[in-house]
Amino acid sequence: MSEAPVIGVVGTAKNTGKTTTLSYLIQHAERRGLRIGITGIGYDGEELDNITFLPKPRLHIPPDTIVTTSEHCLPISTARYDVLERTGMVTSLGEVLILRITKPGLVVVAGPNRKSTLATVVGKMKNVGVDFLLIDGSLNRLAPMAVAEKIIFTTGAARNIDISVLAEEMKTIERAFSFRAHVRELPAFRSIALLGKKMTLNLGIISLLDGDDASMVLEKLTDKTEYLYIPGLVSASALQSLIQRLPNNRPQLILSDPFTLLLSSEPPVLSSVLDLFDKKQLHLFFASKPELTAITINPFYPRSTGTAFAAAFVDKNEMLSQMHSAIHTPVFNVKEESEMLFSLCSPQ
C-alpha cells in the first residue's frame, strides 16, 4: 500500500478552472518523477464545453500514469495504454477501466461518479501503486469528493462575477471545513443514531430532510444522548428546526463530512445555520474529514451574447486580494502560482 495523498479538485461551478488546476498538478508531479494516478467524476477533457461550446483544456497525461476512465472515452483519447483491470462498474460511457499509460497523450477522464464507487477505484489505484492521486471533479459536484484527503476548491467569475459574493461564499466553505473529525467509534449501520454511554439508538432513516425528521429525533432524545449521528444528507431547514428546539450545549452532532453541510443549502443560508450552532454552543464533528488545502481562482467567465457565449474576465488582482482578506486558506491564481499549490499537495 502506498501513502499517496488523494487530492480532489472541486469546482464551485463549471468553468472555474478545475481542469487547468489539475493540468498544473500533473505537470509538477511529472517533473518530480512521481507516479500519478487520476480519475474523474465527470466528463472532463473534452475539446468543447458540452453546454457553452467554448473550448476547454484537455488533460495531457504523462507516461506510466494510472488512469481510471470509461471505455467509450478511449477512441477519442490520443495516449496509448495497457488495460490493467476491467472493473465491472458501468457509467453512461461504458465500463470503467483502469489503465496504465504507455505513450503520453490526451485522455478523456470519466470514471465512476458516485461516492461509493469512486472510493472503490481510489482503493484499486492505490493498490496498483501511485505516488500522487488526483480526482477531477465535475461541474459543482460535491458528494463523491468526500473520498479525497486534500481538497482544492476552484472558484471564479463563472460562479459569480461579483467578487465580494465569491469571497463571502468561500468564507462559509472554509467555515464548513473548520470542524474536527470525530474520534469516537461510530455504529456499523448507516442510519441516524442517538449515541450515549453504553447506548445506541437506531432511528431507521439515513437523512434529516424536514421538520418531521427533526421532530422524530427530538422525541427520542433523552438526557443520556451525548451524540446525534447523521450519516446521510441534512437539509438546512431540518437542521434549523432541530437546533432551535435542542437544549444548549448538547447533544454533539456528527455529520458524514463537510460536503453534507455544503449540500444542505447555498452558502448564505448555511452561514446562518452555522451561526445558530455557535449561538447554541453545539459542537459539530465529521465522521470523515478531508482537509481544505487550497483555493484556486479563475477570472474567466462565459458571457452570454444572446445566441452564444463569449469569453470575458473580471479583475484577477482584485479577486485575489478580496479572497486573501476573507479567508485563511491559501488562495492561488493557478496560472501564476502553481508551484506553491503543488508544494501544499505533494507527498513530501
Binding site: 467524476i41 465527470g42 467509450h72 453512461s92 458516485r114 461541474l139 463523491p144
Partner: peptide, 8 residues
C-alpha cells in the same frame, strides 16, 4: 452519454 456523465 457525455452530458449524462458530466452531470453525474
Amino acid at each position: 452519454p457525455e452530458l449524462a456523465a458530466e452531470l453525474g
